[in-house]
Write a protein that binds this DNA or RNA. Structure first.
Length: 887
RNA sequence: GCCCGGGUGGCGGAAUUGGUAGACGCGCUGGACUCAAAAUCCAGUGAUAGCAAUAUCGUGCGGGUUCGAUUCCCGCCCCGGGUACCA
């Protein structure tokens, strides 16, 4: 038969759709397998070849798992809120919902053309009110939850104990106390704001020179805006612990650990000369307190203005302004050196009473610790650099000791170099207050100083996290509206569950409000509400960030049509956790951390049954493309490049170009569209190539010639097995049986290990063998179709039907591997002399080492290599290799 | 700077409880088919030397352990990704 992939693929895609072949039922009696792809943002550009990579991998696993008897949940949906549709609305007036629908339809069409076995009845869309109703519902849960640190879990706000002194201070005090505990709160947050665009902008939109990327003006500033925030740091410890039990790439877990950034240290209070207030610092090295020679507070620190002397006022104010205008990158660029200004104020070192100057410097960040540090230049690189710049004293209190070269050690001791490793303390004694850590090691010192501070009431041991409150609102139209009303008397209330979903209003224009407010501030009637008592209120105009919808979509897939609850408990209990989650590594931290956070809150509230959402995570690598650049390194679009004898030339200039590997991009004209590949080679070829190109997790370049390779393989399968005369009755040859069973085993094992490239290679080896053999039995052929089916389902269905089946091949069980067919009668021993293989010798299986040794020593070929040499040793590794050591 | 990956033929990649390096595919070369080309089929294909048998070299570089190292250890170089002064 010819390989008419177009006809074959159309037929079977129709068959699967007509028969709802991949519809998942909630049959709780079967073992379940929940396999999830990171759902895409349906962009206007359509699918690129990177999407099908992960989708094909999960599809193969799903088809394989079904044939192994699992009840498989394999859904697809759209993460469809997002900026591009809104941008397009601003430019053209097209409603984002319209753009979104168009893009979703296109994505669905493209994905369906690949023959992926999704249960389309479970399709969800984050912009659908029946979906975001529950996103809003979860937000109300977050708002009404507090974290009980003692119990280590979230609880309903109604269970929050109110301390007596708060309770007696009145209603307002209680309200403030409660609000302070909620996981969601409304507060001030500093954001970038562009006065020209009248919008809040992202960190990366603000360029190094302080201009706004989108409009080019320098009208950007740091501004405080009222925002919704989530107290994710309360779950830091839980998020950290939870990682241990997950089957995730170690690197991703490490990235999450680093992001959470747990550190233990101490908070220490310093008195300020001439002030009542104390300056509290956080340090991981309380042991180096004797070496503190100055203090630094962040420019945003609340005490700065208060402690600055009049002589320094102008300089400090100027510095604060400059720091505020600096972009994050600018402020934190290592190459740019450190800056700071003296406040004129002095602090007292609690251990030795020394007066040390307090500086303002932007290398200290307000968002971490207490926003103030004690600087120990002798033992901290950053402080050292700063001290050198401003000529501040550097006092060594930790002797690097033996093992460090003399030059370095002397430099450290004289304050000319920084030492942050372990050593022995010097100059660290104050008999008057009963502290002496001289001679101790770092670990002992930290412990002793911390406990001294605690007893003296000057400080306490503290755990700190880098993880910060999550800024959870955006000044955009195209997002989930907050179910929140701000009343004229200042009260904030949330809508009742019965009032959800709160839908987006229709607006005339999508431009932001005058003062940086969301476009919803133009929404007229929708905006104002009046309660039963005539009190007026205004709806929240911010919307939720794109993360919101993707934080819990895996739960909705379980029961996507449920109208009375986000999902039925029994179904959740059966399907969770997700057994395999596949997506790009770019989501290693944020999406996966946010999702885990929500999940843990839902778990604490008894809404979900598992502590973690995603049991196994696998990252697919990026698919790149070849690109071209000139000798000077400038990129040349691919349509201007000609290949001649393996070299590449510029069509216009004739210059020789260098082939490089780069991300696919419009400007390089090297974007590969899956539609074109399906048109030219078929969906099975596209699927196979995406898997054959290399390991799933690797970054690899796309080549069209590679597609041709797998296409050839499929064509050969189609023509060989499609030819009646190649299929025979009777007993299969021993050799073919062995190959077949090797293939069953290898492919099965490789799918379990997500090693699809080697599985395909094995099927190629098998097919090559069949072609050489000339014919195989019908039984062999059918078994092979079953092995091929998860990878090239259309062709496998076709061949399966041709062999007389009326049911889909997907309903047949995975073939059973029989090791009996693999037994060998002979072993080929490579015989090496001094580690170099000289010849190979076939010997019967089952010989003892002694027998193998004798057989080899007695062999003619051995004699040549023994001439003039003496045997030192003979190593026989049974079944593997023989090595004879000569002298 | 730090953290995490990774360096194997012309190319994508196989092979690691240490045991025949280069499976499979692309490309290339030669042959068959064809008036010719494409497609397809067959054979060859790490480098060097040799007509050949064969020999030597060969998994980023330099050392080490071992009968034996792509695999383990030490030191370095390069590439990719992440991150940004976290006290």
């Amino acid at each position: 038969m010819d390989y008419n992939f177009k006809e074959i693929e159309a037929r079977w895609q129709q068959f699967w759709a007509d028969n709802k072949s991949f519809k998942t039922t909630d049959d709780f009696s079967k073992p379940k397998f929940y396999c999830l792809d990171m759902f895409p943002y349906p962009s206007g550009a359509g699918l690129h070849v990177g999407h099908p990579e992960g989708y094909t991998a999960t599809d193969i696993v799903c088809r394989y798992k079904r044939s192994k008897g699992f009840n498989v949940l394999h859904p697809m949906g759209w993460d469809a809120f997002g900026l591009p549709a809104e941008q397009y609305a601003i430019q053209t007036g097209t409603h984002p919902a319209e753009t979104t629908k168009k893009n979703c339809d296109n994505f669905r069409r493209q994905i369906q053309s690949l023959g992926l076995s999704y249960d389309w009845d479970r399709e969800i869309n984050t912009t659908d009110p029946s979906y975001f109703k529950w996103t809003q519902w979860i937000f109300t849960k977050l708002y009404n939850t507090w974290f009980d640190a003692a119990a280590g879990k979230g609880k309903l706000i109604s269970e929050l104990p109110i301390p007596a002194e708060i309770a007696s201070a009145g209603k307002q005090a209680i309200k403030e106390y409660v609000d302070q505990k909620r996981l969601a709160y409304y507060g001030e947050a500093q954001v970038w704001y562009c006065r020209t665009c009248k919008t809040v902008c992202a960190n990366e939109e603000v360029l190094n020179d302080g201009s706004h990327e989108k409009c080019g003006t320098k009208e950007v500033e740091r501004r405080f805006l009222k925002q919704w925030m989530l107290r994710i740091p309360h779950y830091a410890e839980r998020l950290l612990e939870g990682l241990d039990g997950l089957d995730w790439p170690e690197g991703v877990k490490e990235m999450q650990r680093n992001w959470i950034g747990r550190s233990t240290g101490a908070e220490v209070d310093f008195t300020l000369a001439g002030h009542d207030k104390k300056l509290r610092v956080y340090t991981t090295r309380p042991d180096t307190l004797f070496g503190a020679t100055y203090m630094v507070v962040a420019p945003e620190h609340e005490l700065v203005t208060e402690i600055t002397t009049s002589a320094q006022k102008a300089a400090v104010a100027n510095y604060i302004n400059t720091a505020a205008m600096k972009s994050e990158l600018d402020r934190t660029d290592l190459a740019k050196g450190k800056t700071g200004v003296f406040t004129g104020c002095y602090a007292i070192n609690p251990l030795n009473g020394a007066e040390i100057p307090v500086w303002v410097a932007d290398y200290v960040l307000m968002g971490y610790g207490t926003g103030a540090i004690m600087a120990v230049p002798a033992h901290d690189e950053r402080d050292f650099e700063f001290a050198q710049t401003y000529d501040l004293p550097i006092i060594c209190i930790l002797d690097p000791k033996e093992g460090t070269d003399t030059v370095t050690r002397n430099k450290v001791l004289s304050g000319q170099a920084c030492w942050s490793d372990d050593g022995a303390y010097i100059n660290s004694v104050n008999k008057n207050i009963g502290i002496d850590i001289n001679g101790l090691t770092k670990e002992q010192g930290i412990q002793q100083v911390t406990s001294w501070l605690e007893i003296a009431g000057l400080g306490k041991s503290t755990v700190n996290y880098k993880l910060r409150d999550w800024l959870f609102s955006r000044q955009r139209y195209w997002g989930e509206p907050f179910p929140v009303i701000h009343w004229e008397d200042g009260e904030i209330t949330l809508l009742d569950d019965a009032e959800l979903p709160l839908q987006l209003p229709e607006v005339e224009k999508y431009q932001p409000g005058e003062t940086g407010e969301s476009p919803l501030s133009n929404a007229g009637e929708w905006l104002t509400v009046t309660d039963a008592n005539g009190r007026k209120g205004r709806r929240e105009t911010n919307t939720m960030p794109q993360w919101a919808g993707s934080c819990w979509y895996y739960l909705r897939f379980i029961d996507p049509k449920n109208e009375s609850e986000p999902f039925a408990k029994a179904k959740e209990n059966y399907w969770m956790p997700v057994d395999l989650y596949v997506g790009g590594a770019e989501h290693a931290v944020l999406h996966l951390l946010y999702s885990r956070f929500w999940h843990k809150v839902l778990f604490d509230l008894g809404i979900v049954s598992t502590n973690e959402p995603f049991q196994k995570l696998y990252n697919q690598g990026m698919i790149l493309a070849f690109a071209y650049e000139t000798a000077s390194g400038s990129k040349v679009p691919s349509d201007l490049v000609t290949e001649k004898e393996g070299k590449y030339f510029h069509n216009e200039t004739g210059d020789e170009l260098r082939q490089i590997v780069a991300k696919m991009s419009k400007s390089l004209k090297n974007v590969v569209n899956p539609d074109d590949v399906v048109e030219k080679f078929g969906a099975d070829s596209l699927r196979l190539y995406e898997m054959f190109i290399g390991p799933l997790e690797a970054t690899k370049p796309w080549t069209e010639n590679g597609v041709k390779g797998v296409y050839n393989f499929l064509r050969r399968v189609a023509t060989f097995f499609g030819e009646e005369s190649n299929l025979k009755e009777g007993a299969e040859s021993k050799e073919t049986l062995k190959m077949l069973h090797q293939t069953i085993k290898k492919v099965g094992d490789d799918v379990e290990d997500m090693k699809f490239n080697t599985a395909i290679s094995q099927m190629m080896v098998f097919t090559n063998h069949c072609l050489k053999a000339g014919s195989v039995t019908r039984e062999t052929a059918k078994t092979f179709y079953q092995v091929l089916a998860p990878f090239a389902p259309h062709l496998a269905e076709e061949l399966w039907a041709m062999s007389g089946h009326t049911e889909s091949i997907g309903t047949s069980p995975w073939p059973v591997f029989n090791p009996a067919f693999l037994t060998e009668e002979v072993v080929e021993y490579p015989v090496s002399f001094n580690g170099k293989v000289r010849f190979k010798l076939e010997l019967p299986v089952g010989l003892t080492s002694k027998e193998v040794e004798e057989a080899i020593l007695g062999h003619d070929l051995t004699k040549k290599w023994l001439e003039g040499m003496t045997i030192v040793k003979i190593i026989v590794v049974l079944g593997k290799i023989v090595n004879i050591v000569l002298k």
